[in-house]
Design a protein around this nucleic acid. Structure first.
Lengths: 352, 352
DNA sequence: AGTAGCAGAGAAAGCGTTTACCGATGGGGG
DNA sequence: CCCCCATCGGTAAACGCTTTCTCTGCTACT
């Protein structure tokens, strides 16, 4: 049982020989070169390539051309629906442009993110998209920015998702506005004793949502004292534990807002385990509108983000307007993606 | 506002010059070359690299070495939790080995899958992992196999997930056994009038689950007449519509098994919309144990697959045992991943 | 002290492409 | 009928890296 001979893949050289033309002609025939090539030759080359099962070696092409067709996408956790939806958008948009997407996961770890960026730089991607990174203001963040600057200086383009990180491009999500609108809507439904299950303080997205929500409440004169804000991590389990802590504090609560849906699902679960019927005893709201929240009971009130569009847009932003054009996206990129409050069963009108 | 000068990235050449050594020495210093290099030199080189912000150009390295550090992963839909969990496993295992993962989505379209494989071949990945591909027996499938054979002939390694596709490696899931066990368990709970929301007939995974389930029922003398089997597509919406069709047929049903959880969620939703309480009026079971099903009401009975492990294993299988060793995985790879029936609220013991 | 042997630096030949440049061919204008 | 120019193959030089091979300068052994 010996391993197969493992001949190396056919090269352009082979194709050229097979077709009886020169290397240059073969090359020109196979990629839409600017220069014309005799149709008869071209056909022969294409046929030969076919016959040999030739595929252009993208690496060699990249080294010769000095540019690649790769997009690098960094996410915190690809199994999280928030990120996988964004990834779907990025991949979709990328494949339209003939780009190939490399995904790396950073596990919400700034150090790891930095190292990943460094490693990915070796791939010389055209574009790097960072979703779900922390902004800690730490030296690690400085290094990250340095790395990205260097990346851009050498012809790459970096784009952030949901994080304003000048001078880099970013797809801005109006987290603050969305959360504010949600708070206003909920206040309108009669909720008064509000608690928030917030994310880790160093995740800016989470903080923006918290701020916006507090602002919306304030407009209705509803306070949000610090002890009603529980910082925990961005997972279902974080939501669960945060809720337990909240309940243990015995604070009177008629609404819990979790700054993302994954956590909100944990909230619902914790409430139920504590014998409280979510939506009846205590209202629950989340953020993101991941598919699951439509299917749980009660269906969750949340803020919808068009996540696939966000991913798509990040890519477009980064691959940029056709060079030479007067950048029509330039200001569009600064305009945050609008979001929509979606009221569902988990926050019925409050009995008075 | 002119674009930045965009100098090209530092090359090894630059590093060598900066360190005052030869190209060869620089190369040897930076990658753990077999050959020794004077420690003093090495340090100078490393420092120079640091100073210049040098990162090895992986493309150039690949073309020089003739081998890459890329893994290509093909999934039907990255936003589907089944696939995103697998992807998480693959990425995790890959990054342990210093490999970088490229993800492409094929949208359950055989033609597109074929084209994707072709395109991805240009990247000369070390490994290609195919999850969720169709097996249609069609000419497209033949072409796909041809493409993969060529890929392996030229030194690559292909691995399938949940699909026995000799001679290629695959991580086998015991779909049939898992479904059989589930059926037996459900029969034991007293269910008798069973219907199945099945997947598209050309997806083998779906058919195996259907078969296994029917077999398990048969052991208990429970029939599964063809009209109780509804073929629909592998989405939540497919499950929803399939259930509507089923209900419209007026067949007496006390249990619906959907061949995957995503569809099962659709089943639950359809039942509820039809005024039937899932779990009380009609039992519901799914397959996969995606996170959501634990959180919906009623929590779904399902079959657990360790999806991340599956992904991880696929990668290990493909990167293979250390060359030279006597392939301890060789038979292990043929041993299907075990699965576990998980009974939850959606299938309470049936009243007699 | 002389030589075998070896360590290790450097030169150079690739790896599979692209692309500037060269030169041949053929057509059209004077 | 000749010359110039446009057109289009081919040749060869990159691209950034690895790796083989050559060659120098030691160490170490007899």
């Amino acid at each position: 049982m010996s391993a197969p001979a493992s001949k190396s893949p056919a090269t352009l050289h082979d194709v050229a020989r097979e077709a009886g033309v020169s290397l240059a002609t073969a090359s020109r025939s196979l990629n839409g070169s600017a220069r014309k090539v005799n149709e008869a030759y071209r056909e022969r080359v294409v046929e030969a390539a076919q016959r040999l099962g030739y595929t252009t070696n993208l690496f060699a092409q990249a080294v010769a051309k000095g540019s690649t067709t790769t997009v690098a996408l960094l996410v915190a956790d690809i199994a999280d629906p928030y990120f996988s939806s964004i990834a779907a958008g990025v991949i979709d948009a990328a494949s339209e442009e003939g780009l190939v997407v490399t995904i790396a996961v950073t596990g919400r770890n700034a150090q790891r993110e930095l190292e990943t960026v460094k490693a990915l730089r070796g791939q010389r991607p055209r574009v790097m998209i960072l979703a779900g990174s922390r902004t800690t203001g730490s030296t690690v963040e400085e290094q990250l920015r340095g790395e990205l600057s260097a990346f851009e200086d050498t012809g790459g383009k970096a784009a952030f998702i949901s994080q304003d990180a000048p001078p880099f491009a970013s797809v801005l999500l109006d987290n603050r506005g969305g959360a504010r609108d949600l708070a206003v809507a909920l206040a309108g439904l009669g909720y008064r004793d509000v608690a928030v299950i917030a994310g880790p303080p160093e995740i800016r997205t989470a903080e923006e949502r918290l701020d916006g929500f507090a602002a919306g409440l304030a407009e209705h004169g509803i306070p949000l004292p610090p002890e009603r804000v529980i910082h925990t991590d961005f997972t279902r389990d974080g939501g669960y534990r945060g809720t337990q802590d909240l309940l243990a504090s015995k604070a009177p609560v008629d609404l819990i807002f979790a700054v993302n849906d994954v956590m909100a699902v944990g909230v619902v679960s914790a409430l139920r385990d504590a014998g409280i019927v979510p939506g009846v005893g205590i209202g629950v709201a989340g953020y993101d509108d991941i598919p699951t929240v439509r299917d749980i009971t009660p269906a969750l009130t949340t803020v919808r983000i068009p996540l696939e569009d966000v991913g798509r847009r990040a890519l477009q932003l980064a691959t940029g307007p056709a060079p030479g054009s007067t950048d029509p996206m330039a200001d569009g990129s600064r305009r945050p993606i609008p979001m929509e409050t979606v009221i569902r069963e988990s926050t019925p009108r409050r009995q008075v």
